[in-house]
Design a protein around this nucleic acid. Structure first.
Lengths: 209, 209
DNA sequence: GGCTTACTGTGACTAAAGTCACTACCTGAA
DNA sequence: TTCAGGTAGTGACTTTAGTCACAGTAAGCC
């Protein structure tokens, strides 16, 4: 199978074999929700292709971007949730068309004891997610909305590998837990400062950004 | 040794023996900093007595309370940091006089594979800390300062087991990453609403709180 | 083309939070 | 006892963000 190729530098050979045997390849379309808040975690996703967006929502409608899961990564929340069968606190949406290996949660416990590379992978993933949450907290606590917006756009651009961002102001506002008008105004200011160009449903970041 | 008593329902007997053999009992005074941002994690603390305060700071001075570590708990950050010898992203301060078992980080890897109860403990700890960070994010993103203040006071009261909170407005402001005057005003409003009583360096929460 | 709908831009206002300036204390040490 | 330093209260103001109410415009569709 070609799939295991992507992980051949990460996992030891026996583990790769186990993954091939036990994991199921899943494909989802852009916009699909892989896991919603309150749902029980049933599998661990190991991303092959595409990007997952992890968000948090409050009781009424407002949402907030936490971080992205890229190819060759997984989501730390599922590790810890699945081992004690707790419901998810977060929502995972396919940011693009996504392919992932669905690993049944049952093997988690065994692999952790058996495969050092799995243990490292899990710990590394958890550490990275922790740091990303801390980054989110930093921004919320210490930065103003204009700085957060700039960071958001940078990260988005990095995640998609493009200077063109295809989002409406409304969507951006949602992910920053703000409001459309405010984002519009801040974007306008950035445009006036020659940092970016605004189009309908699209933003082009300039070099100065 | 009496110390292992506290954990006899958490860990299996052989692990308890290992802990007794390898861990060192450490005592620190209220206010001592156990671990600062940027320092390398050298031990895993297993709390026996007292409370640790985990905070995050920005580049200039501002601080923010993340969560407390209580007796019989540990800090998830150290687990993941220590396994790859990364520097700490957080600061741990003794909120009261504290006693803890210092477990050398070297055993972490081995214990994780060897002792199911250790593995559970680690995963449970990580899960709880994740949820606490999410709680912090929720508050920052979705709640106003007055609600955050109320939550802060409630949590503080719960952590110390007392309706008397011995803090200046300045200190509270620091932990909420706000400013003294704002906190003073909000506290005054709560006092006018008969939710609490204000004294010098002390706040008394009333039943209505 | 004309119509609908979603997206964007903006002025005016309000609310929340932070800052500045100053007063008035309480308290402990000299 | 006095005095210095930390603490608290408050008015006035600014900044930041959110809300309301429109107007204009681009895009898709019948």
């Amino acid at each position: 199978m070609e799939i295991a190729e992507k992980f051949k530098n990460v996992f030891e050979p026996e583990l790769l074999k186990e993954i091939e045997a036990k994991a199921k390849l899943v494909q989802v379309k852009e916009g699909d929700i892989i896991l919603d808040i309150g749902q029980t975690v049933k599998i661990i996703p190991l991303l092959i292709k595409g990007i997952l967006k992890i968000t948090r929502a409050d009781d009424y409608g407002k949402e907030l971007l936490l971080y992205y899961v890229h190819s060759n990564e997984s989501c730390a929340m599922t590790f810890t949730c699945c081992m004690q069968q707790y419901p998810s606190e977060i929502k995972a949406t396919a940011e693009s068309d996504v392919e992932f290996l669905a690993i049944p949660i049952g093997v988690m416990d065994e692999w952790l004891a058996k495969y050092p590379t799995w243990k490292s992978f899990v710990m590394r993933t958890i550490r990275n997610r922790f740091n990303e949450l801390l980054g989110t907290i930093d921004q919320l606590a210490f930065q103003k909305l204009d700085e957060r917006l700039v960071n958001y756009l940078k990260e988005k651009s990095r995640a998609t590998g493009s200077a063109l961002i295809n989002l409406s102001h409304e969507e951006i506002a949602r992910e920053l837990a703000s409001s459309r008008e405010v984002i519009s105004r801040l974007l306008k200011k950035l445009e006036n400062d020659n940092k970016l160009l605004l189009y309908r449903n699209q933003i082009k970041l300039l070099q100065a950004f």
